[in-house]
Amino acid sequence: MADEIKSSNSNVSSGTTPASGTNGRNGKNGKVGLVEIVKDDIESLKTVIPAKAKEQIEDLKDPTKTQVYTSIFRHKHDDTPRNRALGVLSNVFLHLHPAKINRDAVRYSYTWGMGGITFYLFIILTYTGVLLMFYYHPSKVQAFRDVLYLEHDVPFGKILRNMHRWAAHLMVIAVWLHMFRVFLTGSYKKPREFNWNIGVLLLVFTLLLSFTGYLLPDDQLGFWAVTVGTNMARATPLLGHEGPFGPQLGMTPYNDVRFGLLGGSIVDANALLRSYIWHCIGIPIVASVLMIVHFWRVRKDGGISGPAPVMLQEEADKPRRGPKAAGE
């Protein structure tokens, strides 16, 4: 750096000193002065620019020192424990993780990776779902034709719809397996009771997301599945017109809970619009908020539950509090 400054200084002075000199000497004859100045500048181009360029090309050999790089990545990339930790902590996407975890927690056999896979599938579904929204109108006239258009005319439209459908099914399975694993490892026990509850709500919203999406192609499959599903709501105790004590409370097909779900007494245009809005906006927002809480609580409750050291029967009723109770 010091060399660089010195050389650039000398270049600048050798370029400008004669120019300012000529200016002073030939004040009367401006034209000669101007030609000299330009000549001098052109001369200097041969030395100043190549020198600068050479320096900067040298600098580019280590791009991690450029201003652009250091503005994006706020720490060095050398393989040191500090940088490994900072790589996770100073990145908004990766900072969901702690810097370090229990050495056995990365074993696939313990976690099955299903929570992470569920989240990844949610991201895929959001991505493919947004793309599908560009081609879809939630109206009785257009909806089914849009799906046909998507399948036959839109480039990659078919694989887009297929991926959205299969990722949705896979997400339901992944949620179940995640929940199954969490139960089998007793991970809902103190201090993770509340997070298990958030997880149950996320299960419900995953199923509702899938269910509201079922109607959107507006085909026989979705129509009858949703008809069967929402017919159950007729029978809601107190709030359905065919449910226990519903008629006594004044419930009819036109004011009960099913009417509220469908926006009508049959599965029709309003039901399509309602399920579209729940599917694309309402439930994803609620589910995202719950996911934020879920991930936050995983960290706050002491990271993932294990694999923890086994406890023995005689230790069962001894109070185990403080950091030691959490794991190691």
């Binding site: 490892t185 007793g186 809902y188 026990k189 103190k190 539950s305 294990g306 923890a308 406890m311 069962a316």
Partner: peptide
């Protein structure tokens, strides 16, 4: 589930 055992491992 008040059983304190089996938290964080398969059993």
């Amino acid at each position: 589930d008040t059983n304190p055992l089996g938290s964080g491992y398969y059993t």
